[in-house]
Design a protein around this nucleic acid. Structure first.
Lengths: 220, 220
DNA sequence: TTTAACCGGAAAATCGATCATCTTGTTGTA
DNA sequence: TACAACAAGATGATCGATTTTCCGGTTAAA
């Protein structure tokens, strides 16, 4: 029936992996909460096997913890870990941006402009946060994409996901948010100008500012 | 029957994960090889579900690739990826060692000495490479353990595993091996002396030398 | 009162079988 | 001979049921 419209071959396991990842990032589970597999099974309307496969992957990725014989849990949140994550983000993203500015080509420049533009348009649409989140992630990934190191990109993405758990839980801070949004576009300008020193300084500042917002999730 | 001898709660899935990881690192599969699940099932004497869970974890970890609807594969080896892995190791391990030398306490010093000693004794026992590999991994982990960043340690371990696939496949190089072995003990001395500059320089050199050995796996 | 052993119920892990998809080999046609 | 359509076999993904393990409450013994 769907032989023509087939979305590039996905499986139950891969689909539920994405859904769960997004749900965890978005704080739809309590930190430290125990995963009730049978509840999830019904909540997502899927069998046990693909569900367990997704959970196993998520725990290898770091978005779940697993203890033998006692199932899966949502990881705890702690100030110490947020500090660690933010520090690592600063180091790795500075590293990546520096290389990206040296290696990025014209194709990359136009992609970056395109994503930044779409991000700007999503900034005011408070009704559709999910859309903004998606573009925001894509923007940061595009920014450092041509750094030349697949492993560096992989680690950065992983840290972003970890960081987002904290950030999305933190209370809104419109004042800082405005600065952060502006920085995205300054980053594009500096990237196109290949001003490595300024761009690296700005991304570092950007992460630190985001960190200050995310800190709000630890006071409660 | 084994109610008394139970090793601290492990599952079939977690045990086979470890076995498979070691087998992959040790090159007991061909690079690019397709995983025949049913063959593994019998080879390791385990059911399908725990096996699949282990495979899923390994692919999330990066020691397998997975394409929807067509199973798992051993990742290819390439010069470009080895370069990437080695570069990242240099950067991250230098970073970690610098912090470890600032934070490591007396307890750590004695652990480091102990592991280094056991490693030295294993150096000449060519009959038991697996033992040496285990201690070698432990030594490098101990060296940077007190760096203060759980995520940095995680990334470093992951890169070590990736790197080892190449290194263990490369032909032996006794001349370089001797230098590398000596460096382990020089690293201990510099660590105890808290000579950050020299220690960081040496670990960097150590990784580069290992890289030159590992390169041998790409020429065939 | 405290500690240790013992149940039941709940949850996790595992198995065997079924369903869906891909791959390969064959056949018929241009 | 080349190529497309099809069919059969192999492999992967998923399900339902079974086995194993853990957890909390209870009781018995020190």
């Amino acid at each position: 029936m769907d032989s023509l419209v087939r979305q590039s071959s996905s499986t139950h396991a891969s689909r539920i992996y994405e859904v769960l990842r997004e749900d965890i990032l978005d704080g739809r589970f309590q930190a430290g909460e125990k995963i009730a597999i049978n509840a999830l099974k019904e909540r997502y309307g899927v069998g046990l096997s693909p569900l367990r496969e997704a959970l196993n992957k998520l725990s290898a990725y770091g978005l779940l913890t697993q203890e033998n014989q006692r199932g899966f849990r949502i990881p705890d949140l702690s100030r110490a870990e947020l500090d660690d994550i933010a520090d690592m983000r600063r180091k790795l993203e500075c590293m990546a941006l520096e290389q990206a500015l040296q290696l990025g080509d014209a194709e990359w420049e136009s992609e970056l402009l395109a994503v930044a533009h779409r991000l700007k348009r999503a900034e005011n649409d408070h009704a559709n946060m999910a859309h903004w989140e998606q573009l925001h992630g894509r923007f940061h990934r595009t920014l450092v994409a041509p750094c030349g190191s697949a492993w560096l990109l992989r680690f950065i993405s992983q840290l972003h996901d970890q960081f987002d758990r904290y950030r999305r839980l933190a209370p809104e801070n419109p004042a800082i948010r405005e600065v952060l949004d502006a920085q995205h576009h300054e980053l594009v300008d500096l990237a196109l100008a290949r001003d490595i020193k300024a761009a690296v300084g700005l991304i570092d500042h950007h992460v630190v500012l985001s960190y200050e917002v995310a800190l709000g999730s630890c006071r409660r």
